[in-house]
Amino acid sequence: MSDTQDEGRGIPKVKRFMLVNRKAPYGTIYALEALEVVLIAAAFDQDVSLVFVDDGVYQIRKGQQTKDIGQKNFSPTYRALGDYDIEKLYVERESLEARGLAADDLLVPVQVLGAVELGALMDEQDVVFSF
């Protein structure tokens, strides 16, 4: 847990927030609404990172076309995350490989980590929100 000694001294508390994205971008609303949480966490000047695992890796797949399913393609928002100082994006290697994908297939620069490394990183967080 992060140090909370700042309490009462007027110094804003910064915690490590990790958003874990596990679901495909369409089909359910989890990816879209998780992105809203990411943006608000950044607006609160928190230390925000994103993880993409399981079908969640499809959220940042290049070349999404949603016209035929009548839904908005919100994938450009991931490219704008840098404007919110969100630069820690992690993708689980096993999830990519299981789907025949590589980092080149993704629309944002990411760090590809194995499940064990990712687990260690999760352990360092103060708050983990999974969607």
Partner: peptide, 14 residues
Amino acid sequence: LGQLIEAGIEADRV
């Protein structure tokens, strides 16, 4: 949603 982030900041565990 700020209330969720605030809970993350103020609570010991979420």
